[in-house]
Amino acid sequence: MEFGEIVSVLLQGAVVTIEIVAMALPLAIIMAFSFGLIRLYASAPFKQIAIFYIEFFRGTSALIQLYWIYFVLPFFGITIDAMTAAVVALGLNIGAYGTEVVRGAIQSVPKGQFEASIALNFTATQRLWRIIMPQALVNMIPPFGNLAIELVKATSLVSLITIGDLTFKAKSLADTTLQVGEIFGVVLVLYFVMAQCLMFFIKRLEKRLSKGLGRGGIHS
């Protein structure tokens, strides 16, 4: 096979990979925020549910979660297509790690900020969303960036439930053409490029969000 042909097939796979990331990432972020906030502020029974979700998805491995959702749920009468299984499994998995990012970032906002917002008589909701969260968000960006890269890497697992992502395309090309060196070399480079692009955007986002927080010590 021509090198150009190989690359073009692989690029098709890369598009699928990006699609999965684009769907799983929002799910992960929603899970991270909702369960991170529940874990911090909700009453005991809800907290327990959040802890169960977090421990379960962090304690077992992503591939097993993917298989469970794809192969086991049909036994419960819930049949979902491979793509949905992939997005749900990866979104919930990365989301569970994200809860700890959200929690850690909120807790790292200096206590004085919370106290000043009480002294100014903001309501609990205003304190969280107007004072604490904008500062916590800045702290969240770098670890969320790392998680996003973990997500890109984890999408390769979906090739094992027959989704035609970048890794799947590579594996099937390798099985048929035997040009394994070029194929896997290109694939590694493509993943690397995706991760670097992601990192670039994250860095820019961090810069924009940290306006005013720049030289911040705790004594603001």
Partner: peptide, 21 residues
């Protein structure tokens, strides 16, 4: 940086299929 930002699964495939070459 390269090893960290590429999937383990692909690295496994790489070692398994390419090293014999």
């Amino acid at each position: 940086e390269f090893i960290r930002s590429t999937p383990l699964l692909v690295q496994i495939f790489f070692l398994y299929y390419v090293m014999p070459e």
